[in-house]
Simulated assay, not measured.
Amino acid sequence: MKVVAFPRTEQGSGASRRLRNAGQTPGIIYGGTAAPVAIALDHNALFHALKKEAFHSSILDMEIDGKVEKVLLRDFQVHAFKQLVMHVDFQRVDANQKLHVKVPLHFVNAEVSPAVKLNSAVISHVMNELDITCLPGDLPEFIEVDLSKVEAGASVHLGDIALPKGVSAVAHDNPTIATASVPAGQVSAEEAAGSTEAEKK
């Protein structure tokens, strides 16, 4: 994804306020061997980009004065009650240095799992993103969690997920990613139906 930014010479709260009034968002690029650079971005373009999942977990092409460098979104601040992005931070990316980032989890095939098809279980997502390390070239936009074989009452753990090549999870244990549980009311309804059948006999 490409992002166009402009160098920003004036700094301070007054200058930032003037930028926002002019429809721009102040930001900064840092990291690597170069000095931090203060930038400004078109607010509306940035606001809509932030709604896209890929913008948060992909290497971005940042163009400033015709020069493009690879960056990663690191932080942004939004106004407490207005639809206004107050500030945004980007980090330069070195192709040879590993990144430490969070990527979203995409859960697939829940509807064909034994838990849902046979037991009408409810799949709960315990985690929606995963902390990983990898080289920039190996950064996945998301990680897929296949739920097709999950049984009722079972859990999916980090160890059950096939991570993309070159990607390592940052976890000291084997955390739970998702669970499949049968609703309590449904269990008792099934039991009641079973009891009725037994009484008829």
Rank of each mutant, 00 (worst) to 15 (best):
H106M: 13
L84E: 15
H56Y: 06
V112D: 08
P114V: 07
F90V: 07
K102G: 01
P36V: 07
F55M: 11
K98E: 11
P136M: 04
E53I: 10
N44T: 13
L73P: 09
I132N: 01
I64W: 09
F142A: 14
F76Q: 04
H79S: 10
E111R: 12
L46T: 07
L60N: 04
H106Q: 13
V85C: 01
A80Y: 07
I59P: 13
K70S: 12
N96T: 12
P36Y: 09
A38Y: 10
V116G: 10
V85S: 00
P136S: 04
L46W: 10
F90Q: 01
E129H: 08
C134W: 04
S120C: 09
Q83K: 14
I39L: 03
V116D: 07
L72H: 05
H106R: 14
H56W: 05
Q77R: 08
K98P: 00
H106V: 15
G66D: 04
S113R: 05
K52G: 14
D89V: 05
H125L: 01
R74W: 05
D131T: 01
V85H: 02
F55H: 10
A80P: 00
S58N: 14
V101N: 02
H43S: 09
I64L: 08
E129K: 01
V88M: 01
V103I: 06
F142Y: 15
V101T: 00
M86I: 13
K117T: 10
V101F: 00
E63A: 14
K117D: 03
V93Y: 04
G137A: 09
H48G: 09
E69Y: 06
V71M: 11
D138T: 03
P114F: 06
G137L: 05
K51D: 11
N44F: 12
I59H: 11
